[in-house]
Design a binder for these strands. Sequence first.
DNA 1: ATGACTAAACCTTTTAGA
Length: 265
Amino acid sequence: MKIATWNVNSLSVRLPQVLDWLAAQAASGTGAMDVLALQELKMSDDKFPHAAFAEAGYQAQWFGQKTYNGVALISRSEGAAVVKNIPGFTDEMSRVIAATYPDGMGGTVRVIGAYFPNGQAPDSDKFVYKMRWLSALREWVHSEMAAHPQLVLTGDFNITFDDLDVWDPVGLKGTIHCTDEERAHLRGLIELGLTDSFRLFEQPEKSYSWWDYRDFGFRRNRGLRIDHVLVTSALKIRATACGVDKVPRKNERPSDHAPVVLTLS
DNA sequence: ATGACTAAACCTTTTAGA
């Protein structure tokens, strides 16, 4: 089973790349993508290209928003018990979508796809919102884990775990995505019993999932690892691989993020 | 350099991203 996350930075612009990537995955040795979490659709629900995904053989659940944010789950099986945004947390922004899928072994996997707030700057109102959002997320994920032993929390977290996730940890110390406060929240999610599946496996040095469009960020590998796939212990023992697929970042007109793929036995 | 790109919108300028 394969589960992935990809911040596409406008699905209108990136749809052909997403369809190409899904086809390439299906043709690869590891097999077709079972669930792909997308972030930053930047489109209202009525603009979501469900017919294009259906034609390619995929179901979709989506939670759009005009101009900003917007999340979706693209899957081969139909998602059940769909939840949009964090229950009980009033939010104008479309940032979370969750659904339950067959795990291929007679059980189910709960997948939560999320676009975490950016936070802009540590002294901004947006940072305050990010902290509030993170607290609400943790409480909800805690209850979701109780109901779903096999759970994946994935998406664009907009937080690095540590210096290993940062191209310039000295220069970027204390800046957005790298603050102690954000990292404490990320550790709070881990303390619920989740594991960063990426670090279960040997990785190339300086592995990142996002690179600034400016100043040849990708070419110089000036990036951050802010897109994550966290798994519960029941899935940790089934994880066989996790990695960043940098290939789509080399496309013409790429997203600034690359997909991260988790493979389960 | 409140810069550099990219995307969307009330679009030749602003807002946001990270």
